[in-house]
């Protein structure tokens, strides 16, 4: 129960952070961090895919509602939640019945960041693909994806380190 409330707290906190602050950032006109997927990345390992996707969908939908981009973030986040278990298995092998949250504590920092990098890149790629919705300016789109992924990752590392040191 405490875990659930904790999760809700993270959900709302990241959502507010995203809407109120991060969406206003438009670094050099190309980079916007989408830190809210940190929530999806750090959900418990034991959680089923369906649960993951539902959480992710509603988080994405909430972001969409607040930024008037119906469907874009929901689609991207749901996709990340869908492929998360596979990516996790790719980088990190543990016994299935063990319960852990993906993070620096459970994994090594290098493993967590490579996992986070792949997921973030996928998410941002989908967000900008759906946002541009054309391949007429592939260079600009790649720049958007790369810069935003970099920014999101930096913020994610900061948050992860803060959280780790607090505990």
């Amino acid at each position: 129960m405490i875990k659930f409330f904790n999760r809700i707290l993270w959900f709302v906190g990241l959502l507010l952070l995203q809407i109120l602050i991060l969406n206003r950032i438009h670094w050099f006109g190309v980079a916007t961090p989408f830190l809210y997927i940190y929530f999806v990345l750090t959900l418990e390992h034991s959680m089923s895919r369906n649960q993951l996707m539902l959480w992710a969908f509603f988080l994405g939908l909430a972001v969409d509602i607040c930024t008037n981009t119906f469907g874009i973030h929901a689609a991207a986040t749901t996709f990340v939640a869908f492929v998360r278990p596979s990516i996790l298995r790719l980088f990190f092998i543990r016994e299935e019945n063990e319960i852990y949250e993906p993070g620096i504590r459970a994994m090594s920092p290098a493993v967590f960041f490579s996992y986070a990098f792949v997921c973030t890149l996928l998410h941002h790629a989908i967000v900008f693909l759906l946002g541009f919705f054309s391949f007429s300016r592939p260079g600009l789109m790649l720049l958007h994806i790369g810069a935003s992924t970099l920014l999101t990752l930096l913020l994610m590392i900061a948050v992860e380190l803060l959280r780790h040191n607090n505990r």
Binding site: R49, L61, G71, I72, A74, A75, T78, F79, L130
Partner: peptide
């Protein structure tokens, strides 16, 4: 997955 993505794209 397909249901949720379908909803997302429909909204989009």
């Amino acid at each position: 997955f397909l249901l949720l993505e379908g909803i997302s794209l429909a909204l989009l």
